[in-house]
Nucleic acid binder design. Structure first.
Length: 700
DNA sequence: TCAGCTGACACTTTTGAAGTGA
DNA sequence: ATCACTTCAAAAGTGTCAGCTG
């Protein structure tokens, strides 16, 4: 099956390094230098050179230009300076801040898929102690990795570059049995989000380019409840949904206290009424004072409805403190008055619009936190923050993920060393310590209403080579397939239609094992699940399945097992086993064969694509086999790294976590894509996109 | 005993359907 | 009939808190 492995920055292959060092970046926008430089220094010369891609010169050039910028970098830095915490819940919680990115350097006419994955930064578990985060033990075994596919994917470079790319729909969960396709993480562990840009010829094939980006300031520690008050304040003041918790909000501490008092007051009043409801009657008040109180008391005890002889509330009899009722009432009134005053004041000051921004500014000012200043890299003196992550240069614009390099020169702050993801150099060395086999599942949410124009149609239209041939097709192709993917093991045999059919890489080259750490356990197989895209009338599942079938035949059963050779990250090497089949298929359907060498260089798509979808064109379906031969793919990232010569790192290396799209040779491609449509078929629409767990089960 | 997790809560924002008018 | 705009209710996203669990 198609496999894609993503390794931490450290594990980046030559091309990554090339991206890091050779892609020109504006002088004012330094790339993430520290780490890159450091790593570079320690890397063998050959790694520093741009990846030789003779067959795809243009592709390389293009690759070098690809740049990603973290648009809300300043916000991230504010959090990072304090020690970013991300709430994870059973049902899934969005990240805040979210990843807002700007992409440039893409070929406007080529299609790309954007992926988000989150990898552990180290093998430690943390605890918030003494105002800071301390490593208190070893990390829990890694859970199956999942990758969030941006809802707009695949879309043209023009699409991605014309707007801010947001991954705010991605959710984090600590539910290891999550069936929603959310990214599963362990609480109290440190993670680093990564964004991958993958060129895709169409939904069925990988393109030739791939780029990974890491923004150190986006590192975070997962929690089920905020530990650091500063983080809480920042979140409340930055997140619109938490506006109610601001001082001027209706859910502020003050208001909550007021409500609490109100409740108590109401309860008290209720009790009061219950105890002396009839007290309204003046007659009761006029009752003879000499009434036998003992009898009354007895009567009250036995008959609650009976009016209290005293016809009044007796504090001493109430369940509340003696003076509570009165005090509560006064306090309530006082709080209300105060609230009203505050509200009025705020209302006068409040101006529509920039509310959040203003709040942020206010917060920053009020907090007077050094960390909030522009000197982001400098960790706040405050002990409350967890080890500051290696901070990038002020600029958040990065080229492709630098490989190992990532060690951040900046000194980590006690109490714990804050290993930078980037720093983990081919730390793959650490990979050996990876707890368990990793599986990465791609979740392809149904595209939520995009703030921007709808994603480019996946399939090119045959009408014009330059223009998108597929625009006639509904916004998203919904290859609704139901193929279920068996969780790929190290051998990469997932039963379902794999991502392979979705993302095929022509001429994928076999991945090389990264330097020495590769233990089979490190391997992670990624399952690519495609969301159910809105059912596209034009799309025929049958076709898809048909297209996939050839692939099945092409895959020898176990040949795809990730070589667990000495290499740390056995990689999937389809070419060897599939070459023959590929050639055959190519001969059969020449038009469908992508030209690897020209893939990235030419803006146009292979003329055949539309034909791949019968509905649109009777032309022969695309032949997935080709993908396997595609040279450049995520998996290659680490392959070239020398196993024996990891770059020096200022931080402890952590295991590399490969992301792998794996097509199981055993998978029955006859049922490809079937699960992709399962959602609609089963009527489980997901508000923000449907998720499909490629590993073993269809989500939704 | 306590750290960590869970679910309910109240609030806010977002989303989409329904209604209205040009 | 179509389109643009407004209104409204439901859904979803927040942090907080009390209670539960191991």
């Amino acid at each position: 099956m198609l496999s894609v492995e993503m390794f931490p920055g450290l594990a980046l292959g030559p091309q990554r390094i090339g991206d890091c060092f050779y892609r020109e970046a504006p002088a004012h926008l330094p790339l993430f230098p520290p780490t890159c430089d450091v790593s570079a220094a320690g890397l063998p010369p050959r790694l520093l050179a741009p990846p030789p891609v003779p067959s795809e010169p243009t592709s390389k050039a293009q690759k070098d230009e690809v740049k990603m910028e973290l648009e809300n970098s300043s916000l991230w830095k504010q959090f990072s300076s304090v020690g970013t915490e991300m709430i994870i819940t059973k049902k899934g919680r969005r990240m805040f801040p979210g990843l807002r990115l700007k992409l440039s350097g893409l070929n406007p006419s080529l299609r790309y898929i954007l992926l988000l994955d989150i990898v552990p930064l180290d093998n430690s578990r943390y605890r918030f102690q003494g105002g800071g985060w301390q490593a208190v033990g070893s990390a829990e075994a890694r859970l199956p990795d999942r990758v969030f596919i941006h809802p707009d994917s695949p879309a043209t470079g023009a699409h991605w570059q014309s707007r801010t790319i947001s991954f705010h729909y991605a959710k984090l969960t600590n539910n290891t049995l999550d069936t929603q396709g959310h990214i599963i993480l362990h609480s109290l562990h440190r993670y680093q989000p990564r964004v991958h840009v993958i060129e895709a010829r169409d939904v069925l094939r990988w393109g030739g380019g791939q780029h990974s980006f890491v923004f150190p300031e986006t590192q975070f520690i997962t929690v089920t409840a905020y530990q650091n008050n500063k983080i809480t304040e920042l979140k409340i003041n930055s997140n619109p949904f938490a506006k109610g918790f601001r001082e001027d909000g209706m859910n502020s501490k003050k208001q909550r206290d007021a409500r609490q008092k109100r409740k108590i007051a109401v309860l008290t009043e209720t009790l009061d009424i219950e105890n002396c409801d009839p007290c309204d009657s003046t007659e009761l008040l006029q009752q003879p004072s000499d009434t036998n109180t003992d009898l009354q008391a007895l009567a009250l005890a036995s008959l609650p409805p009976l009016p209290d002889p005293s016809c009044g509330f007796r504090p001493e009899e109430a369940s509340y403190p003696d003076t509570q009722p009165l005090d509560l009432g006064q306090a309530f009134m006082a709080s209300q008055m105060t609230d009203i005053s505050i509200t009025m004041a705020n209302g006068m000051q409040d101006t529509a619009g920039s509310e959040v921004a203003n709040n942020m500014i206010e917060r920053s000012d009020s907090m007077a936190e050094p960390a909030f200043t522009s000197s982001f890299p400098a960790p706040p003196p405050s002990s409350s923050s967890f080890p500051s992550a290696p901070l990038p240069q002020p600029s958040s614009s990065f080229s492709s993920l630098p490989s190992s390099d990532t060690s951040d020169p900046q000194p980590s702050i006690p109490p714990i060393d804050y290993p930078s993801l980037l720093s983990s150099s081919p730390s793959l060395s650490a990979a050996a310590t990876t707890p368990s086999l990793q599986q990465t599942s791609f979740t392809f949410p149904t595209p939520p209403p995009s703030n921007s124009s709808s994603p480019q149609p996946l399939l090119p239209s045959s009408s014009s080579p330059s223009s998108n041939p597929y625009h006639a097709i509904p916004e998203t192709i919904s290859p609704q397939t139901d193929a279920s993917f068996a969780a790929p093991s190290s051998t990469c045999h997932s039963g379902q239609m794999s991502a392979q059919s979705l993302l095929i890489q022509p001429n994928q080259t076999l991945q090389q094992e990264p330097g020495g750490n590769g233990s089979p356990s490190d391997q992670s197989s990624a399952n690519l699940s495609f969301p159910n895209v809105s059912p596209s009338p034009a799309l025929h599942l049958q076709n898809l399945s048909h297209q996939a079938q050839p692939l099945t035949a092409a895959f020898p059963p176990s040949s795809f097992a990730h070589p667990s050779s000495s290499l740390p990250h056995p990689s999937f090497q389809p070419s060897a086993c599939l070459a023959s089949s590929f050639q055959q298929s190519a001969g059969t359907h020449p038009q469908n064969l992508p030209n690897p060498s020209s893939s990235s260089s030419t803006p146009s798509y292979p003329p055949v694509e539309i034909g791949a979808i019968p509905q649109f064109n009777p032309a022969p379906p695309y032949r997935p086999e080709m993908v396997l031969h595609h040279p450049s793919l995520l998996p290659q990232l680490d392959s070239s790294l020398p196993s024996s010569t990891p770059p020096p790192s200022l931080y402890p290396a952590f295991p590399s976590y490969p992301l792998r799209l794996c097509q199981d040779p055993h998978s029955s491609l006859s049922i490809p894509f079937r699960h992709l449509y399962r959602q609609h078929q089963h009527g489980h629409p997901h508000p923000q996109g449907s998720y499909l767990d490629m590993s073993t089960r269809a989500v939704f």
